[in-house]
Simulated assay, not measured.
Amino acid sequence: MTTARHTRQREVIAAVLQQAEGPLSAPELLARAQVALPTLGTATVYRTLKLLQQQGEAHAVKLDGEPLYESSGRGHHHHFSCNVCGRVYSLHSCPVALPSGTVYPGGFVVEGHEVTLYGRCPQCAEAR
């Protein structure tokens, strides 16, 4: 495999992550990236995700199932997981007023937090 091709694959995968409305699974990322690069394979996606994480350009989001991936640098945000269609969306408002350094009852010192809300996304709620 040539360096230019590898670079093009990395660029496409990074662009898909940046344009996504929420974190993506590796198979979702593969399907979207194959629109631009039809010959892109699963192994290349996983290798590129590992590289992007090592470079700090992407990170894994851990929910109940398989890991999902999103671009880094999006600032503090949380996620909404649709119970009907399974899509995960990024939420850009924080429902928790719990700043870093807060001492939680029992002596727990907060350094950060993650929140995932579950329910029906607008499309699935409308269809019901």
Rank of each mutant, 00 (worst) to 15 (best):
M1T: 03
T2K: 09
T3Y: 08
T3G: 13
T3P: 02
A4C: 11
H6S: 14
R8S: 07
Q9M: 14
Q9D: 14
R10F: 00
R10L: 11
V12I: 07
I13M: 07
I13W: 02
L17Q: 01
Q18H: 10
Q19S: 10
Q19W: 06
Q19K: 09
E21W: 01
G22P: 11
G22K: 08
L24G: 09
L24M: 10
S25F: 00
A26C: 05
P27W: 04
P27A: 04
L29P: 01
R32V: 06
A33S: 15
Q34F: 04
V35G: 05
L37R: 06
T39P: 08
L40F: 04
L40E: 02
L40A: 05
L40I: 02
R47M: 12
T48R: 11
K50M: 02
L51G: 03
L51P: 00
L52M: 12
Q53H: 05
Q54A: 08
G56V: 06
E57A: 05
A60C: 10
V61N: 03
V61R: 03
L63S: 10
D64G: 15
G65A: 15
P67V: 12
L68F: 04
Y69L: 00
Y69H: 11
Y69Q: 00
S71K: 11
S72T: 09
S72P: 01
R74A: 05
R74Y: 04
G75P: 14
H76D: 15
S81C: 10
C82P: 11
C82Q: 09
V84Y: 07
V84D: 13
V84N: 07
G86I: 14
G86C: 14
R87E: 14
Y89D: 15
L91Y: 08
H92F: 15
S93P: 03
S93N: 10
S93G: 09
S93D: 11
P95G: 13
V96Q: 14
A97I: 02
P99R: 06
S100I: 12
G101I: 03
V103I: 14
V103P: 07
Y104Q: 11
P105V: 04
G107I: 03
F108K: 08
F108D: 03
V110G: 02
G112W: 00
H113P: 00
H113S: 12
H113M: 02
V115M: 05
V115L: 09
V115Y: 06
T116G: 08
L117K: 01
R120M: 04
P122E: 09
P122F: 05
Q123K: 13
Q123E: 14
A125Y: 11
E126R: 10
E126I: 02
A127K: 13
